[in-house]
């Protein structure tokens, strides 16, 4: 349990650290950390209950997409500012490294296993983003149509 709390804090700081690298505006840094923590919590919860690698990353990506759009509206800043740091704790860094390592050592079979895992995770996150974007587009459409009716 204490490791879980340490991990939460670590995810928050990883979002802020990545924000420092890509030069986020000062007032966006804290929110970026919170976005990262939220998406990772969703990922962690699904990973440890019923889901596998795919669905956990899918819902993680979906959470980032939705949260960043909402915060972008509240703060009047582009949404890309918040979804980039949110992505950091989901990136399949370990698997990608193991792919390269096994390729370098000549274990092509193992390397391919890791590579397929990387592709699977990246695809799931991307799919989550797509669905979030779709939901956002539908929301804008509904807003537009209802405003057109009322006039």
């Amino acid at each position: 349990m204490s490791l879980f709390i340490i991990k939460c804090i670590c995810v928050y700081f990883s979002g802020i650290g990545f924000g420092l690298i890509v030069n986020l505006p000062h007032r966006a840094l804290n929110v970026a950390g919170i976005t990262a923590t939220l998406s990772w919590l969703v990922y962690y919860a699904i990973m440890n209950t019923w889901g596998g690698l795919g669905s956990a990353n899918f819902f993680g990506g979906l959470t980032i997409g939705l949260v960043s759009v909402v915060i972008a509206h509240l703060k009047k800043m582009p949404s890309i500012l918040f979804d980039v740091p949110g992505l950091v704790p989901l990136v399949p860094g370990g698997q990608a490294y193991n792919t390269i390592k096994n390729l370098a050592l000549g274990d092509y079979q193992v390397a391919f296993n890791y590579l397929s895992e990387v592709v699977w995770i990246a695809g799931s996150i991307a799919l989550g983003f797509i669905v979030a974007e779709l939901i956002n587009k539908i929301r804008i459409k509904i807003k537009y149509v209802s405003r057109g009716r009322s006039n």
Partner: peptide, 27 residues
């Protein structure tokens, strides 16, 4: 304004250190 180099470097260190804990459970 861009963040000064030492702060960027600190950010990179923060990303590296924390993600070792998150990904690999390696405190």
């Amino acid at each position: 304004a861009t963040f000064p180099l030492w702060l960027q470097t600190l950010g990179a260190g923060l990303v590296s250190g924390t993600l070792v804990v998150v990904f690999q459970n390696n405190l």
